[in-house]
Computed example of a mutant assay.
Amino acid sequence: MHDPIVTAHEINSPLAPVLLSVEKQQDGIRHVPAHSHPQGQLLGTFTGLATVGIGERLQQWVVPAIHAVWIPPNMPHSSLSHGPFHGWSVFVDEQACARLPAIPRTFRASRLLREAVGRAATWRRQVLGGAELRLVEVIFDEICNLPEEPLGLPMPSDNRILRIATQFLGDLTSQSTLEEWAAWTSIAPRTLTRLFVEETGFNFGEWRQQARLMRALEMLARGEPVTRIAIDLGYENLSAFIAMFKKRFGVTPGKFSI
């Protein structure tokens, strides 16, 4: 049984505040099976990557540390950390969610949001004062107004394609071609191409680049050198990595604001 980031009593109590922010650190991999609750939830990590499944089909998204995921009330979701877990969650009263997005969304968490969430995690009072309620409004504004960045990585549900995706995420330096992956899973290359688009919205090459981008953002957030990131992600040279990154984000990795 997983250790809940917050107890059911804490969030379901009639005395629970309109917003409850909590942090959790765990040495091992953290897996939270599919579940739902009346509260809306904003979820993020301080380090590493988390795979979050949302909706009836639990569509999987790999989310880097500098991003956050908004999950509306009563929506099934699950999560899995890729390595030790250090993350945070904000639970919002169901009635207050009427003014927040009705569909899931991912966005890059601003410094303001991260600071506000961290401050809210220090609250221990069930009744929030004026200053605290003003900070709640700031968090709500950030959830609603931060530009959506669909940088999460959609994970396929087809078991054959999921095997490829999982294997690649375990070794982002892999240069195996689509044809080689197809042979590994005994799928015709044309079928693999079609399934990848149907399951993720990306062709295989785009999905692979997106996966590397996710890891690059995570490593930048940890302050790792750009040269090491390029090597660890399997780029032929530093220039190739910088060119790809600048094409996607408009700035070089060294100037990207985490």
Results as ranks from 00 to 15, higher is better:
Trp70Ala: 05
Ile258Glu: 03
Gly55Tyr: 15
Met1Ser: 11
Arg105Tyr: 13
Pro14Cys: 09
Val52Glu: 01
His35Ile: 07
Ala8Tyr: 00
Arg248Thr: 11
Pro156Asp: 10
Val127Gln: 09
Pro64Phe: 10
Ser110Asn: 13
Gly223Met: 12
His31Tyr: 09
Glu180Tyr: 12
Gly118Tyr: 04
Val197Met: 07
Glu149Thr: 13
Cys97Ile: 12
Arg114Asn: 12
Leu58Gln: 10
Pro64Asp: 00
Ile258Phe: 09
Val136Arg: 12
Arg125Pro: 01
Ala68Met: 11
Ser13Lys: 01
Leu80Val: 09
Ala230His: 00
Gly83His: 14
Val32Phe: 02
Trp181Thr: 15
Ala131Val: 02
Cys97Asn: 13
Glu224Pro: 12
Ala121Thr: 04
Ala216Cys: 12
Leu217Ile: 12
Ser157Glu: 03
Ile54Ala: 03
Glu142Asn: 10
Glu218His: 11
Phe245Ser: 05
Thr47Trp: 15
Gly28Val: 14
Phe204Asp: 08
Pro253Trp: 02
Asp27Arg: 11
Gly118Thr: 05
Ser13Asn: 07
Gln95Asn: 14
Arg119Asp: 12
Glu115Val: 14
Ser157Gly: 12
Ala116Thr: 01
Pro33Arg: 05
Phe241His: 02
Leu42Ile: 00
His86Tyr: 15
Val138Ala: 08
Ala240Gly: 08
Glu198Met: 10
Pro189Ala: 09
Pro101Cys: 05
Ala98Gln: 15
Ile5Cys: 01
Ser81His: 13
Gly48Cys: 04
Gln126Ile: 02
Arg248Pro: 05
Ile11Leu: 00
Gly55Thr: 05
Arg99Gly: 14
Glu142Ser: 13
Arg111Asp: 13
Gln59Gly: 08
Leu43Cys: 04
Val18Thr: 07
Ser176Arg: 15
Leu195Trp: 11
Asp93Thr: 02
Glu137His: 11
Asp3Gly: 11
Phe46Glu: 10
Thr177Lys: 10
Asn12Arg: 11
Gly250Pro: 06
Ile66Gly: 14
Thr7Asp: 00
Leu153Phe: 10
Ile139Asn: 06
Val69Gly: 01
Thr185Leu: 07
Gln210Glu: 02
Thr106Phe: 14
Leu128Phe: 09
Leu20Thr: 00
Gln59Asp: 06
Ser79Lys: 11
Ala121Ser: 01
Leu133Val: 00
Gly53Asn: 11
Trp207Ser: 05
Trp123Thr: 05
Ser257Tyr: 06
Leu178Asp: 03
Gly48Trp: 15
Gly118Ser: 06
Val92Asn: 05
Gly129Phe: 07
Ala34Arg: 03
Pro76Glu: 01
Ala221Pro: 08
Glu94Asp: 14
Gly152Ile: 14
Phe46Ala: 07
Val18Arg: 06
His77Ala: 01
Arg163Gln: 14
His35Cys: 10
Pro101Glu: 09
